[in-house]
Design a protein around this nucleic acid. Structure first.
Lengths: 152, 152
DNA sequence: GCTCTTATTGATAATAATTACTATTAATTT
DNA sequence: AAATTAATAGTAATTATTATCAATAAGAGC
């Protein structure tokens, strides 16, 4: 008879969220680790990964998977537009959709192209009863288990 | 006194390109490996990775980095729109920008949201003399070397 | 505040995707 | 056809991420 009070408020989790919310970049897990370490020197990288998973699953942060070999994280959960450097992998925001060209020019980037990607659930995944929330807020491990409808 | 005739036409490279061009999915390196193996059983996974690098660097194919833990590759190099499954990681195409809603409906996906990402070069990368072509067609290893302008 | 329960942690091992290495093979030039 | 050397197959190494597990500490109830 317990009302499933899961999510505990730990110093570590709070610190990670604070840092991510306070920063305008889109840091990787190890970048966050280095920053949070200044506040909690004994924190471990695994804890950072685990809390990033939880925060993403609960919708408090977003994963952005489009920048190099490492996952990046975004403290801003409102839908918005990214601009990514093909040289160093850095990702910046462009807030508004109107006057977009102007705002892009303001960033100083030399734009080579863009990609528009919709996300949701494919017919195969819709037809199977899938467990609770998936996708954006889901860990790679979980997602990997459903990679059967793959080839050709 | 050699005119740098690099790129050789190997059976392996040709087979990899053929398969990727003939397929409407956006396979991962190991998926391509399995398919190409039917034609060249002795091919190695490393060769697949290497040739995907070269083909992307020469602009004949595209990397798409937005689908789970593995890189995916696209034989279609014209700018176009993707739709990705949050359940299984599958990526499909949506060809036209007009009547987009209608075409999305045709895919049978349940759309949860979208991301619009521009790519190019950030001011920092523009100010340094960068080696030849970079970014989309570049290997992760190369790109990683320039990840200094990172934090906060 | 103190005790109990158990989610979370730190530390480390394991896994998965990708890249590097090296002797051998085979495309291209001559 | 012989010479040159980029590309290959096979394997080891690296890197990012996830799993494991004993120890810790957050929250509930007293």
């Amino acid at each position: 008879m317990r009302h499933m009070e899961c999510h505990r408020e730990t110093r570590q989790k709070q610190a990670i969220l604070d840092v991510l919310k306070s920063v305008t970049s889109h840091p990787t897990a190890d970048e966050l680790y280095e920053i949070v370490r200044k506040r909690i020197p004994a924190i471990s990288l695994g804890t950072v990964y685990r809390n990033l998973d939880r925060l993403a699953a609960s919708g408090q942060i977003r994963r952005i998977q489009s920048a190099g070999s490492q996952m990046r994280f975004d403290g801003c959960i409102e839908p918005h537009t990214h601009i990514r450097c093909m040289g160093c992998g850095r990702v910046d925001d462009i807030e508004a959709h109107e006057e977009l060209r102007y705002r892009i020019d303001m960033t100083g980037y030399e734009v080579q192209g863009h990609r528009l990607e919709f996300y949701g659930f494919c017919p195969a995944c819709l037809s199977e009863d899938r467990p609770e929330s998936a996708g954006i807020g889901e860990s790679v491990g979980l997602r990997k288990n459903r990679l059967e409808n793959r080839l050709e």
